[in-house]
Structure formats: structure tokens, C-alpha cells
Design a binder for these strands. Structure first.
Lengths: 338, 338
DNA sequence: GATACATGTTTTATCGATACAACCCCCAAG
DNA sequence: CTTGGGGGTTGTATCGATAAAACATGTATC
């Protein structure tokens, strides 16, 4: 294991000078820098990150806590975040919370271990009642729905507006009996499901279309299987419907499958729209209309917020920043095409 | 920042005793342990991971280098690896190599920075000529195809055998003009594409079906778009075919889409099979037949190999281990169902 | 009573880098 | 000639934990 001392000896300078070269400090003669760099190459020296971390108090790694990376939406989000973090010279370690409140609390506890310089938490289980838990003196950015007026930065999707636009899109295309396949919005909890439900209701009201509770098909989790089961159930129950707004694209892919299982033709008999605009949606048969919340913008913003908090660390506690992404409606075959 | 010293003072013991408690060492009186734990809770003490790392030379984190986490196959693999690593108390940091040789070399270089205790490299760009690069004194496990008789552990897919079984499955279902949509296998390079091409050829030969180069449709990268374009091209070129073996499921989803674009009915006119058995395959319309290489087993094995190397560090260089996963043929609608 | 040994606990040195402040040298300004 | 200041370089202390070994204390064995 070659250390900074070895390099110093080889180059005939002190360890500090080597450190200066490593960190691009000014006040190092060009000739000296050259000599040091040469020694570094010759010895194949690598900084010991642990030692640097100990001294500087930074780790250069941020945590990203998502329910599961194998859900396309989160996979795509993770990819964007890793890319964005690289621009700030940050590595990303991924935690899977399993979409549970406990998992998310674990991720929070973990970060307080100072393993990471900061945490991006894509929350689904935490609610407004948990805001206290976020009052830690530790850089955190919440990614996803808007949790109340929490004490932390957050980057949110335009959940209500997007859902409204999706529903309005179906209405525009002639649908009047629009089913909602959601994640089972319970009571007043504020989460992705309830927010998108709100948007759905608003669009119906605006268009003067009556809300029918029988058209709401909950799925326990945001999975393809849940979507497929919900769609089959809707058909089997004999409820008439000519459109479906799905809480996520993953669910929507399941819904397309469930409708196919029952021989329902999309978009002729029923039109379908999702939310998230995951890449797969462009290749389903029929291709899936969706709401595109601009992942790349969200990921970039979340990382920027976090990076800012990290460098500002120790300074006075600034007011929490909030960013709501923009969105576009992507019309594909499942609602009759563009 | 509360340190181990603070805890020691509060509990009236030495720092070492606190350390012993933290690391579950024996030889600590129950009563003392209790007192220490109480102090830890009271002060809300957290170990400083950087300090521990520096002293022990371990980081508790492994690197996982994959082309892109937003490709379903790699997302699902990453999820399995994170889960498996958790069983060994290891965290996982993800690097994206962009499916390029340079990216993979970067990932290798990075790990030598000692940022991670070891690296799982899901390689696509490195070839047999690069085995020298892997001769580092650093725990590495290659995940994916078999790179020659490299000097490192690897966990491989049953590429040739799986491809042969997939092709044989199509033949069994009556196909005689079987197209291959692959990643553009060039020359003698050993990679996923060339290995699966070999399996395809073997199956044809075994069944006495003539190979026709016009049925091979290369795609530049393993994407849905590539698959869709290849399928459209095959149809447009007027080459007759009644089956398609796709190098990966992601490509296969694109192929299904491309065939739909040209009004070709699956499985009636053309049967399609992929490789990897990603979750989405169960929900496409028609659902996708595939080769299931048992991701979970592969991920578990890769992590176990790596963990072993990590704990064995410093001991004599053992011979490289190799594991080839088993596989099953999953027959779904795209080849006529189960 | 001496020896060996297991259980508990502490002392000391150290992992490898960097913050901080001191230092030297040289030149410009007064 | 003295003072001041910036470029260039270095010595020292330190980040917080743990390895290793020493040090107690008890207690079983002959």
C-alpha cells in the first residue's frame, strides 16, 4: 500500500506538497508539481479515501433510497440521479426501502451514521405526521410527492396537475366513464395515490362528468400484477367504462395486459393513460399514453439541491426549497394516438 | 459530533470497551455492556464510519458496475444484488459504464482507489484480451459472459446452452425459418452476442435446419428501439421467417412492437422468444417466452464469491472460481403458450 | 502455594490524509 | 536599511476508531 508519504519521499518534497498537488491548490511551482505527478504515476499511488474522509468529514457519496430499483420508474430515476451526481463528483449508493415506512426510516437512520454526505429519499410511506423525523441536521432531499410543508427540501412531481391533465386528455378523446386504477388512497393521507386521485376528481368536475365510486379500482402496490388484476376485476364486475387512468405506467402496463386477457380492445373500446412516461411505454402494444414529468429535470434538481446543502453545511439553516417539475402529455396509441 | 470517547466518559469505561461493545466482542461483562449501550442511546452516538474504515481497511461497501441501471435486466439484477449484499452487511454503490469498454475500465480504476471493498463488474465491453487488466490484487467478480479463462472469479449465464434451448423451443413449435436479432457479433470476440449466436447455430444444426445469413438482424445496442427497427427491417426486406430468437428480452419487446407496426401477428404468423426473463415479459401483449437464467441465484452467488474474497484478503491467491447458472425455458403466448 | 488460564478492561500506537500556521525567500515600497 | 507581502514549502497536530498487547482479577488444577 503506497501512501502519500512514499510519494513525498520519492519526489523529494513533503507530504503536504503532495496533498496540495492532489487537491489542485495554487502556490505549487510548476516544476514541483511535475515531479510529484511523476512520482504518483511511477508508484501507482491512489489516495486513501477513508483517510481523506476522516480528516475532511466528507465521504463523496450520497445515498439514494428508493422502494425498489427494479421498478422501471425508479430504475430510470436512479440512472438519471447517478448521472447528475457524477457532474458534482458524487457517487451514489442505493438503498431499497421496499416501499415501506420502516424501510424509509431505516434509510434515514443509516444516513445519520454519516456514511453518506446526504440523502435523496424517494418516499412513499412517510406522511405529514413524520415531518419531525426529517428535522435532522443532515442534508436530505425528498423526491416524490409533497409532504406537507416539511422542514426539508423537496422535489415534487406535478401530481395533481398531471393527473388532471391525463384525465382531461381521456375526456377530450371522448371518454365519459373513466376508471381509476390507483394505489388505494386511504383517508386523508397525502401520497402519490391520493394526490393523483384529487387530480382525477378535479378533471371530472371541470368537465361536468359525474364521479362513480364503482369505477375506482385499488391495487395494493404499484405493480404490473396489481394493474392486471384490477383491470380484470373491473371487466368481470360488469362495470361499464370507456377509459382508464392508471396511477403509474407500471400499473398501466398491467392494465393493458388485463384488458387483453378479457378481450377488451384498446383504444377502440377503452382508452388507457398512465403516469411517469417510462421508456417501456413507447413499446407496448398498443403503445401507452402518459404524463411525462421530466425525470431528468427532477433528478438534476434533486442532486443540485442536495449538493448545495452539502457545501453549505454548518451555515445557518436556510428555508426549505421546493421544486415542482413541469410536465407534458404524451399521446400514444392507447388513447388513439398523437 | 459525539465520539466514542464521549461515550466512554459517560459510561465510565475506556474507549476500547465501548469499541468492544460496538463490535460484539466477547469478554465484556453484561452489566458493563448495558451501561455502555445506555450511554450510546443517551448521547445518540453513531460510529464514524470513515474512522473505522481507515483503521480496519474496509469500507463495508461494494461497487456494482453495470451498463445502465435503467435497462430492466440490470435494474432487476441490481435489486437482487443489493438484497444479497445486505445479507453480508454490505452496501452497494452503483457505477454506470454506459456499456463501453472505457466505462468498464473506469470502474476498474475506481475500485483501485479503495473506495469499495470489492467490485462486481457486469461486463459487456471487455474481451479476452483484457484479462491482464483484471490481474489486480483486488476482489473482483465478473458477472455475465465467460471471459476466457480469466484470473478472476466469474458468474456466468448459460449463454450457449440457453440460446440453444430457446432456438430448439421455436423449432419444436414448428418454426423452420428462424431469425436472430442479436447485438452484432463481430469476428471472434467472445461476448453475449457471439455466445448466443453459437447456441442458435448449434440448435439449427442439431435439427438439420439450414442457416441463412439473411435471417440475422443485428442491432447496434441491446435496446427496445434496436429490436423494433430490426423487426421492421426484416419484414420490409421481404425475408420470410416464422420465428425470432432475440438476444435479450429488452430487444424482444422491441421486436414485438416492430412486428405489430407491420401488422405481423404473434404467435400465429411469427413466434418470438427472448432471453433473461425480465418481469415485463409476463405482461406484454402477447406475453413473452424467454430463457430464465435464475437471476436470484446468480446475484447471490456473485455476492458470495466477492464476500469470500474480501474476507480472505491477504491470504494466498486462490484459483479463480467459476459458476454457470442453470436455466429454464419459460413458454408464454409469444411462442404459443405453455 | 504456585501455575495456568479464562474473563474483563485499559494503554498505547497507528491507520493516511489534511487544516493550520509557521516558515523561508525574494522583491517592492518607503 | 527596514518593513510588508505574496509565492512556495513544510512541521505538527489531529480527525475517530481499533489492533495488539499488556494488565488486572478470579479460579481451577496439581
Amino acid at each position: 500500500m503506497v501512501t502519500i508519504q512514499d510519494v513525498a519521499r520519492a519526489a523529494g518534497v513533503s507530504a503536504m506538497t503532495v496533498s496540495h498537488v492532489l487537491n489542485d491548490h495554487p502556490h505549487v511551482k510548476a516544476e514541483t508539481r511535475e515531479r510529484v505527478l511523476q512520482a504518483i504515476n511511477q508508484l501507482d499511488y491512489r489516495v486513501n479515501v477513508a483517510a481523506r474522509n476522516l480528516r475532511t468529514g466528507r465521504t463523496g457519496t450520497i445515498g439514494l433510497a428508493v422502494p425498489e430499483v427494479d421498478r422501471p420508474y425508479f430504475g430510470q430515476l436512479a440512472a438519471e440521479i447517478i448521472t447528475a451526481a457524477a457532474r458534482h463528483n458524487l457517487k451514489v449508493a442505493i438503498e431499497q426501502t421496499g416501499a415501506s415506512r420502516e424501510g424509509e426510516l431505516d434509510a434515514l437512520a443509516l444516513s445519520r451514521n454519516r456514511l453518506y454526505d446526504g440523502l435523496i429519499l424517494s418516499t412513499v410511506g412517510l406522511g405529514p405526521t413524520d415531518t419531525d423525523l426529517l428535522k435532522v441536521d443532515y442534508p436530505i432531499v425528498i423526491l416524490g410527492e409533497r409532504i406537507f410543508d416539511g422542514p426539508v427540501d423537496h422535489v415534487a412531481m406535478p401530481n395533481v396537475e398531471g393527473a388532471r391533465a391525463a384525465t382531461a386528455h381521456l375526456i377530450e378523446r371522448g371518454c365519459r366513464r373513466i376508471a381509476l386504477v390507483d394505489g388505494g388512497a386511504q383517508g386523508e393521507e397525502v401520497n402519490v395515490s391520493s394526490l393523483r386521485f384529487t387530480g382525477y376528481r378535479e378533471a371530472l368536475d371541470e368537465a361536468g362528468v359525474a364521479f362513480d365510486a364503482r369505477l375506482v379500482a385499488p391495487t395494493s402496490r404499484f405493480t404490473m400484477e396489481g394493474g392486471a388484476a384490477a383491470a380484470r376485476r373491473l371487466v368481470d364486475d360488469g362495470v361499464e367504462f370507456d377509459g382508464v387512468f392508471c396511477v403509474t405506467d407500471t400499473v398501466a402496463i398491467g392494465v393493458l395486459r388485463g384488458l387483453a386477457d378479457r378481450g377488451v380492445r384498446v383504444p377502440d373500446e377503452v382508452k388507457v393513460i398512465g403516469f411517469d412516461n417510462i421508456a417501456e411505454g413507447g413499446y407496448t402494444v398498443p403503445s401507452l399514453s402518459s404524463i411525462d414529468p421530466d425525470h431528468s429535470l427532477m433528478a438534476g434538481t434533486a442532486v443540485r439541491f442536495l449538493a448545495k446543502r452539502i457545501t453549505e453545511k454548518g451555515k445557518k439553516r436556510e428555508v426549505a426549497r421546493e421544486f415542482v417539475s413541469r410536465f407534458t402529455v404524451v399521446a400514444r396509441e392507447s388513447t388513439g394516438g398523437a
